[in-house]
């Protein structure tokens, strides 16, 4: 049991990395990766929301959707739940933990429609994960997202002072970098 949990966790970080392997959540990956500082903030926020969403959607799936055979409403109801959840979490930490809110606050609304978060929820269902497995999968997915984001931001900080050919400046070089990074991550597929 524990072994499979660790397996799920590590797989989600390295082998099935949400950004670099499953190509999910590219919007924040390109948008928030120009500085390491904000990349870490975004990474922590996504991890946080992913775990919450993983647990909440597991509940809805197994307590409501399956018993009433409404599985075809998965996607739309998960989006609704994640959006509401993010809003709720934002309010709560704004009140209870102002310091945390200052660190995560600007990123939280951005995560509402992050497809990596929805991806975690849907993959949990597809693979019939239990509650514990779901949360480990979500935690690994979030940390993997953060890892990709931090690596990318480090490269982009270095790129910012390099002499890049005019035609490649900005987004083009970022996409090429992301592609190379994804290729590099394929090398980790033999890890488990």
């Amino acid at each position: 049991m524990t072994g499979s949990l660790i397996g799920i966790f590590l797989t989600a970080i390295f082998i099935e990395n949400f950004v670099l392997n499953q190509i999910l959540g590219l919007c924040p990956f390109i948008g928030v990766s120009s500085r390491t500082e904000s990349a870490v903030g975004m990474g922590i926020s996504v991890t946080f929301v992913m775990v919450m969403a993983g647990v909440a959607t597991w509940g809805v799936q197994n307590l409501v959707l399956v018993p009433y055979s409404l599985e075809y409403l998965q996607t739309v109801s998960f989006i609704l739940i994640i959006a509401a959840l993010v809003q709720f979490v934002e309010m709560v930490i704004k009140k209870l933990a102002p310091a945390l809110y200052k660190a995560l606050g600007v990123f939280l609304p951005l995560i509402t429609t992050n497809c990596a978060v929805l991806g975690v929820a849907l993959i949990n269902v597809r693979r019939n994960y239990g509650l514990l497995e779901s949360s480990f999968h979500a935690l690994g997915g979030g940390l993997g997202f953060m890892l990709a984001l931090v690596i990318m931001s480090g490269i982009r900080e270095r790129l910012a002072i390099s002499e890049v050919p005019v035609a490649m400046r900005g987004a083009p070089i970022a996409f090429i970098t992301a592609g190379l990074l994804a290729t590099a991550f394929m090398g980790l597929s033999g890890l488990i």
Partner: peptide, 10 residues
């Protein structure tokens, strides 16, 4: 059922 569920969830 679908409408009811989504409506209620919302």
């Amino acid at each position: 059922m679908a409408a009811l569920f989504l409506g209620l969830l919302g």
